[in-house]
Design a binder for these strands. Structure first.
Lengths: 110, 110
DNA sequence: AGCCAGTAGTGCGCATCGCGCAGTAGTGTC
DNA sequence: GACACTACTGCGCGATGCGCACTACTGGCT
């Protein structure tokens, strides 16, 4: 099954949430997202999202040399990023509740 | 707020669900979706989705002359459409649960 | 009659965004 | 020194929702 389209509009929030939990670099964020159930998220999508969020001022970035491999570009969440995440969490909840209603699969959501 | 991206991948299922509940024509489906919370769904999106679903064999179509206005192109769900809807409902549930987990906004979903 | 609003549908081109794939680069292993 | 793993970048594609313009039919207002 293809969750590609479903991911749209949610990847931003997911990446923000992961980085909020703990600073991370691209490769690491990809792995964390996958381990949390977003199995088939593409690495290029995540890198792209990180760059976009950084450009939007939602993330800060600092480079850390790695012991085993190339340097790592770590990302941390900014105040602005936290605000964006809060809004997107809310949007998601409302949207999910609405869709659940339309599909008749509601779960007493918010 | 802009739910455009969130809608992607869900409109198909939403339209199928609405038509499953009762046969409907484009204009009507748009209104029903909007009244159910998908406030800002564009009419062109729905018409396009209906045509796509029809082309995919998920919907049948029959024209009914209208008393007040142009003819109405009614759509009904097919067996194939019902199967698609069942799959998409399931995908949505799983996806919503996963995203809820990542965002930390889970609601005891399926 | 002339015009506008409401209903109903089609077509066109655009924007967003996730993805596949190729390429670069650093480290360790056989 | 070929290969594998780690890590990041860039390019072009494809799916899909949207805005807008256009057609077309009915009815009400002037």
């Amino acid at each position: 099954m293809d969750t590609t389209q479903l991911l749209k509009g949610v990847l931003d929030a997911a990446v923000l949430a992961v980085v909020e939990a703990e600073d991370g670099y691209g490769y690491d964020v990809v792995r964390r997202l996958r381990s949390q159930g977003l199995d088939d998220v593409g690495d290029a999508s995540v890198y792209g999202t990180l760059r976009r969020l950084y450009a939007d001022g939602a993330l800060t970035s600092y480079v850390v040399p790695s012991a085993a491999g190339p340097h790592r570009k770590y990302y941390g969440i900014t105040t602005h990023g936290r605000q964006m995440l809060a809004i997107q969490r809310k949007e998601w909840q409302e949207f999910a509740a609405t869709v659940g209603g339309v599909l008749g699969t509601r779960n007493e959501a918010a």
